[in-house]
Design a binder for these strands. Structure first.
Length: 600
DNA sequence: AAAAAAC
């Protein structure tokens, strides 16, 4: 049966506004509101600037090539044409032209508008390119482009602990120095105002040549946390001296990136790449991205045109290294993002091969930054092998332990889940522009549930690993821009993805790992905004009930009585899967400091 | 047990 709304439904009912009689029959008409997509001011934010867009300005380049052309459509990233390079890299890094930093002095037909170069040991900054700025930074009022960090002040509440030898003092604002002035301008274009706690520490840590091990999630501003210091130093210092074999490998030049970022999922690397494009603007650094499921020859063409900061999933990168298209000999900066997740997914062999088994400079000849939500033993081993004298940064949870996310629980048997879900969607539909992300455990369930929702007149889509990359990208795009404000997802979307405006996360199926739960609800309430999460609990979820209750208590959430009872029963009923499984639930701590016996 | 990821 459906013991609905156990944890209260505070005030939602009083806020519905419009009506929609085409809705499912589960809720009386007065509780229905119009489909969110329909009320969205602009379902497809900017009508493709492509064709006669700036591709034309560079002399008739095929628009499929650069990929900028596609991106205007949904405001976001994923299209097959934009597999690598972000459309950048026309011409070599050191062209003979002498660019001026001042836009007024740029020749009008300069095809390098927006791109800089490194020439004779100097950073030659490219002129501004307004079309490109609109493209990569978005319109100020485009919600799908909006950066999540609206309530930045709230970041000050996030506790940060830095340990290690001689930890540099954190910065308090974006300034030059220590940041390169060009980067500072780009940060301004991207409308970032105040550094997040991770960024405050990572900027001076990297600037001082130190390695970093950070326990933090994506919502903490971690992407900027590694992009800012790496790009800043790159702008100022230039690339590593090109080794002896710059050309002629397989007839073409091999890409020799200065910075490499590894992340577990395709969507995540694409998202990081989008950020990289913002901050590399007008500089000599050409960002590129490679991942599986997309046409590899297209990616090869693009990295050949410029690949200084490469974001990659491990499998595709290994493939490209084997094909001789990428050399890591020039790497100065290595980032492992979501390291625990990558190990969970079995990437360790590929990662070790990339870092230790190819031509990447050794640990003392590069700077390495590792990010991980947790710090279990296998990550510690990786840190021991990949990092040197690192600073350990522990960043408090942005979501769960703060009160930004209201966590509701409902006792729902499996057979009742669909019906309860419709109830919930209806009662939330008045929050007009918010997005709803629904997590299920299996790919099959993701398909079935999204079909079911569509049958019930909801604009829903789904994302999971059995869909083609194309479908995944489309799903994410229409979700972000509000055309399908409901997305059913498997674990593929659980971590790392930064989707602004997700106001509601539904754990239709609870995960069996408490960390997964934390990551999932962390898709809402991003960056200090508030969000709601609803979880369907039943007897099949007893394996995490104890940890759930602990978590709720920590986060100052209301705990339904029946949930506490269930937790109490579980602690006697044998089947506890102890906390000692090698993984603390909190962000982790620096085991080097001793600190009186960790929990692993 | 399922999910993710190279072809």
């Amino acid at each position: 049966m459906t013991n609905a709304l156990v944890n209260g439904n505070t005030g939602l009912e009083s806020r519905f506004d419009s009506m929609n009689l085409s809705r499912s029959a589960y809720v009386p008409p007065h509780m229905r509101s119009s489909q969110r997509a329909a009320s969205s001011p602009s379902p497809s934010p900017s009508p493709a600037p492509s064709r006669n867009g700036w591709n034309d300005s560079r002399g008739g380049a095929p628009s499929s090539r650069g990929g900028f052309s596609d991106r205007g459509r949904g405001g976001n990233s994923f299209t097959n044409n934009r597999v690598a390079g972000g459309g950048q890299g026309w011409g070599e890094r050191s062209t003979s032209q002498n660019w001026s930093a001042s836009p007024r002095e740029q020749p009008k037909d300069n095809q390098m508008f927006g791109y800089g170069a490194w020439k004779d040991g100097q950073h030659v900054v490219g002129g501004r390119n307004m079309r490109m700025e609109k493209e990569i930074y978005g319109e100020a009022d485009d919600p799908s482009k909006q950066h999540t960090g609206i309530n930045f002040e709230k970041y000050d509440d996030i506790p940060v602990e830095a340990t290690g030898a001689d930890v540099p003092d954190p910065v308090t604002s974006f300034t030059s120095p220590p940041l390169d002035p060009v980067l500072l301008e780009n940060i301004g274009y991207a409308r970032y105002t105040i550094p997040t706690p991770v960024q405050k520490y990572s900027i001076p840590i990297v600037a001082n040549g130190r390695d970093l091990m950070a326990c933090a999630q994506t919502g903490s501003g971690k992407t900027g946390g590694f992009l800012f210091p790496i790009l800043s130093a790159s702008f100022t210092m230039g690339p590593r001296a090109i080794p002896s074999e710059p050309n002629g490998y397989g007839g073409r030049r091999r890409a020799t990136p200065t910075a490499l970022i590894l992340a577990p999922t395709r969507e995540l690397v694409s998202q990081i790449h989008d950020e990289a494009r913002k901050f590399a603007y007008r500089s000599w650094v050409r960002p590129a991205v490679v991942y599986g499921g997309a046409d590899i020859s297209q990616q090869i063409r693009l990295i050949e045109r410029g690949c200084d900061l490469l974001t990659a999933t491990p499998g595709r990168l290994v493939d490209l290294i084997e094909r001789g298209k990428i050399s890591l000999a020039n790497i100065k900066y290595l980032v492992l993002d979501e390291a625990d997740r990558m190990l969970d997914m079995g990437f360790e062999p590929q990662i070790r091969r990339i870092v230790e088994g190819e031509d990447m400079p050794g640990v003392h000849d590069r700077q390495t930054l590792m990010f991980s939500a947790t710090f279990p033993r296998d990550i510690q081993m990786l840190a021991k092998d990949f990092l040197k004298d690192y600073v350990f940064l522990s960043v408090g949870r942005v979501g769960s332990t703060s009160e930004n996310i209201t966590q509701k629980f409902e006792y729902v048997e499996d057979n009742d889940k669909r019906s309860v879900l419709l109830d919930i969607l209806n009662s939330h539909s008045n929050e007009s522009l918010g997005l709803t992300l629904i997590f299920v455990e299996t790919k099959r369930m993701a398909d079935m549930l999204s079909d079911f929702l569509i049958q019930n007149q909801w604009h829903a889509t789904s994302i999971h690993g059995d869909r083609t990359q194309r479908e995944r990208e489309t799903a994410l795009q229409t979700f972000r821009n509000g055309q399908t404000p409901i997305m059913v997802a498997t674990a593929v979307a659980a971590r790392g993805l930064d989707i602004p405006n997700v106001t509601h996360v539904v754990n239709y199926d609870l995960p069996s790992d408490i960390d997964d739960y934390v990551h999932r609800i962390g898709r809402t309430g991003r960056a200090g905004n508030t969000g709601v999460s609803t979880a369907f609990y039943n007897k099949n979820n007893k394996n995490i009930v104890k940890e759930l209750v602990e978590l709720l208590r920590e986060a100052n959430q209301e705990i339904p009585g029946w949930l506490e009872v269930s937790a109490h029963e579980a602690s006697f009923g044998g089947s506890f899967r102890g906390r000692g499984r090698g993984r603390g639930r909190s962000g982790g701590r620096d085991y080097r400091t001793g600190g009186g016996g960790g929990w692993w």
